[in-house]
């Protein structure tokens, strides 16, 4: 593929994330500004941390609270990331100097765009999707810091585009019969953990439970001597 069409394809793939990130990033930047941290802090957080939900819960901790609390919060909120890399260990091999950035920038949204890609997608498209996504997030948070609460129009609800993106990827994957059982399992585990543990911090236990349930057939087969 020519450079231009690689860029074009990456841009089109990243469009749904753009809607979500620009809005959520703006909300983050505005929240940070309200807590007394200027644009340079928005830039710093979105460049170095680059993790949506953690950045939101981080803001009150930046204003006060212990460093130990910051450590534990980061661990709890982002524990789910332990599971994302598993699917890309082989894929990111051989990406050379791009590999560290691919690992660093593997957010929920970038991960989901990767999951929706056909096999054999080029490195160039993947790294651009990753970089565009972070760029949207940085632009959004800086804009939020500058505009704070003076946004000219009410965009409340536009972050639903993220939910819609995840749903679309699920529908696409559900067309493939082999993916249906894991999907049902993931949804059931997440639903059960949500109802039992409540809406805060249920995702990491849910993913651990899902991973355990998915490995049971293999362990059982090994146990049966096959």
């Amino acid at each position: 593929m020519a450079e231009q069409s690689v860029r074009r394809r990456a841009f089109l793939l990243s469009l749904p994330v753009m809607c979500g990130y620009l809005f959520l990033g703006t909300a983050f930047g505005a929240m940070l500004a309200q807590a007394g941290f200027g644009v340079q802090w928005a830039l710093l957080c979105s460049t170095l941390v680059y993790a949506g939900s953690l950045q939101f819960v981080m803001v009150p901790l930046m204003a006060g609270g212990s460093l130990a609390a910051a450590f534990l919060t980061a661990l709890m909120v982002n524990a789910r990331h332990l599971f994302y890399g598993l699917s890309f260990i082989e894929r990111f091999k051989g990406m050379g100097r791009l590999r560290p950035y691919m690992i660093f920038s593997l957010t929920d949204e970038t991960y989901s765009v990767f999951c929706g890609m056909p096999e054999g997608e080029s490195d160039g498209v993947m790294v651009r999707v990753a970089a565009y996504d972070q760029l949207y997030w940085i632009i959004g948070s800086v804009a939020g810091g500058l505009l704070a609460s003076r946004l000219p129009f009410d965009l409340t609800g536009i972050d639903f585009s993220m939910t819609a993106l995840f749903i679309v990827i699920c529908v696409e994957r559900a067309m493939n019969a082999a993916d249906r059982m894991p999907m049902v399992l993931g949804a059931v585990c997440a639903g059960a953990c949500l109802l039992v543990l409540g809406p805060d911090n249920f995702l990491a236990p849910a993913l651990a439970l899902t991973a355990a349930a998915l490995t049971i057939p293999h362990v059982a087969r090994k146990g049966a001597g096959q």
Partner: peptide
Amino acid sequence: ALGRTLPPAIMAALVVYC
């Protein structure tokens, strides 16, 4: 094997998360 079966399971869990 987990690397193959986890992505669809995680996507479904993320929808629940949203």
